[in-house]
């Protein structure tokens, strides 16, 4: 029983971070109706940015949260503005611009191979003051880097949600997500909104990179590890839904952690996909997705 409760604690903490990796993806999809295949690579860029920052300056790992996400915001903002926007313009009349998906896949390959060229294939970890630290609560052990990651993840999700419902820009994002032509007619600059959505989505990948780095390692194709999960989470929670992504993340984290107490951990992957299939059959739009999203 102790092991199961321990697994639940760990599953929720990891799950929130899985949710965080999916948050940027779901935001970009919600607003632009584009599946961003480069999302994992952007996470990798975030992790490398955090890695070098901590490694070279020796600052506390969570101070990197002040630097990396803003950097990645501009990275994403201009990536959308320079690479994706032209394609988008060419495909203006199409509901789901497929070519953009191909562009993001291209970005994925370019970023991964660029990292491979610059940093080599080896995996790197940072030794920080909190790496490997934990505290005990009775019989249970809580890892400090993971708990911090959990807190940051929840805070990011809440922050993003507040931004979406309370601010003018957030409402513009929502309006574009609902109907981009109508939003355009109301005087919202569609492409500026896309830049913003992409920038924020990438910044969130940067936040995820900062909180994962203290307990995981980074290498050029590390994005793939989190990417596939992020896609499942996004669909599970409902495309474009913030709380859906967080809930989806926690569910995946719990399955992974708790089920592996009763069976070989290699099986949990299969169970995640089985649950995913069942959800697709029963509720294809995910937990919080609207029936007709666009």
């Amino acid at each position: 029983m102790t092991a199961v409760i321990q697994a639940v604690i760990n599953g929720i903490m990891m799950g929130a971070m899985y949710g965080l990796t999916a948050l940027g993806l779901t935001l970009i999809f919600g607003v632009m109706k584009v599946v961003n295949f480069a999302h994992g690579s952007l996470l990798m860029v975030g992790m490398f940015a955090a890695y070098w920052l901590i490694k070279l300056t020796g600052i506390h790992p969570y101070l990197s949260l002040l630097v990396v996400p803003p950097l990645l915001f501009f990275f994403g903002y201009y990536m959308q503005n320079l690479l994706i926007k032209p394609v988008f313009r060419a495909e203006q009349q199409v509901r789901e611009p497929l070519t953009v998906i191909i562009v993001t896949t291209g970005v994925w390959y370019v970023l991964d191979n660029l990292a491979l060229m610059l940093f080599g294939a080896e995996y790197r970890t940072v030794k920080t003051s909190i790496t490997g630290t934990s505290f005990s609560m009775g019989d249970f052990i809580v890892s400090i880097p993971k708990l911090s990651g959990f807190v940051v993840s929840v805070a990011t999700a809440v922050g993003l949600w507040l931004f979406m419902v309370k601010t003018r820009t957030g409402k513009a994002l929502q309006a574009t997500s609902l109907d981009r032509e109508a939003a355009n007619l109301m005087g919202i600059d569609q492409y500026r909104i896309y830049n913003l959505a992409f920038g924020i989505g990438t910044a969130i990948a940067g936040i995820a990179g900062c909180v994962i780095m203290p307990f995981y390692y980074v290498y050029p194709s590390v994005g793939v590890v989190f990417d596939i999960r992020a896609f499942i989470i996004v669909v599970l929670g409902g495309l474009g839904s913030i709380h859906g992504a967080m809930l989806g993340g926690v569910i995946i984290g719990l399955i992974e952690s708790v089920f592996s107490q009763f069976m070989p951990s290699t099986w949990t992957e299969a169970i995640i996909y089985a649950v995913f299939l069942v959800i697709l059959f029963v509720k294809p739009s995910g937990f919080f997705g609207k029936k007709q999203d666009w």
């Binding site: 990891m14 590890v225 999960r229 992974e256 952690s257 708790v258 107490q261 951990s265 290699t266 992957e269």
Partner: peptide, 21 residues
């Protein structure tokens, strides 16, 4: 304990939890 795990796992805490038990 007889526990295989996937090399690309994002988290091995579940395996280690089992090991602890």
């Amino acid at each position: 304990l007889d526990e295989p795990y996937p090399s690309t796992a994002s988290d091995l805490t579940p395996v280690v939890t089992k090991l602890k038990a």
